[in-house]
Design a protein around this nucleic acid. Structure first.
Lengths: 188, 188
DNA sequence: GTCTATATCTCGATAGAC
DNA sequence: GTCTATCGAGATATAGAC
């Protein structure tokens, strides 16, 4: 066992996705994590704090994966494609985390987050959209709308790929071509 | 009061969206519906049955709104646009129901649904996609994928419109132009 | 069908030894 | 930090009068 706190988070993630927040008692989380009931409450003072902490930890993991240096000499489209593929790949490689995020943001627990945590730190992406509009490469519409549409698209594609059992080759095809789809949508 | 069963469903809808399934005791639902605790369990033998029944009722409402006769002489694009606008308008006019559906399908309660309830009855739409592919109007890709992408798009646009407080005119603009966006994506 | 009253149980959280 | 043991609250669901 690496670290009890980590074990608790791991068990909680799996159980929440499987049974929901309501359907998962803290006692079961502790049991599956291989720790005592009281230990859980040593690390997380309430169940709600555990849930929110788990969300924050997953978002941090995602952010870390997204923080790959990209070559700035690449074209705008290439830059966006890199970011898109990275995010999509993460969603496919981390199905459970992905489903947890979906469950969390659809739940009222979202409101328990501090407002500064809730706003996404993808200023970089928003900035790229703005550049695209200024350079008349991307359709002129609110960047928040573009952002929402791209995110929804990512969710949809991830869901489709996770659900349908595809051969590796087909999966690769869809990942690559799905960016072209969203690009067709936002590009002029 | 029209009907106690309906009052229970109405109260449950509001409270579930506000506080989540976990955060909403049946006693509170009964209280807000203006009925006794035992009455709730007369109509719904368990809390879970209440949750699932609510989902089914909302989907039924949505289906009813979608079941408008369309003129079959319209072009494929026009037919799809009509369906799209109807669905989007429903999501905007029924924010609470919309958020409930989102919460429900992201939760493990989804698995409690009978399989025949889970599969969408929008064969009509899938059929239109197929026609579009056959007629080389729509890009050749799996129709399930197209369906997922269109649904995600609808979710995204609804969310955007519901969140941002727009003037009626702007809202109208986005509703109309957002179909063109998704069309650019799927059309050849 | 609707109510009141309550049984039963489980869960979140705490106390305190080690 | 970790455990065992347990409290007290509040939940679902039932029983039975009306």
């Amino acid at each position: 066992m690496i670290d009890k706190q980590t074990e608790i988070l791991k068990a909680a993630l799996r159980l929440f996705v499987e049974n929901g927040f309501h359907g998962t008692p803290t006692s079961l989380i502790a049991k599956e994590a291989g720790v005592a009931n009281g230990t859980l409450f040593h690390y997380f003072s309430t169940k709600e704090e555990l849930i929110v902490s788990l969300y924050v930890a997953i978002k941090k993991h995602l952010s870390a994966c997204m923080a790959i240096e990209e070559k700035s000499e690449a074209s705008l489209k290439e830059q966006l494609k890199n970011i898109y593929i990275t995010a999509l790949t993460w969603g496919i490689d981390n199905t459970t985390e992905f489903r947890f995020i979906q469950q969390f943001i659809s739940s009222p627990y979202l409101l328990k987050l501090a407002p500064e945590e809730i706003q996404q730190k993808n200023n970089k992406i928003l900035q790229l959209f703005q550049e695209g509009i200024d350079g008349q490469i991307i359709k002129n519409m609110p960047i928040d709308l573009i952002n929402t549409l791209v995110n929804s698209h990512l969710f949809g594609v991830s869901q489709y790929i996770n659900q349908s059992q595809l051969a590796a080759q087909q999966q690769e095809n869809i990942i690559n071509s799905s960016f072209e789809l969203i690009w067709d949508m936002i590009a002029l």
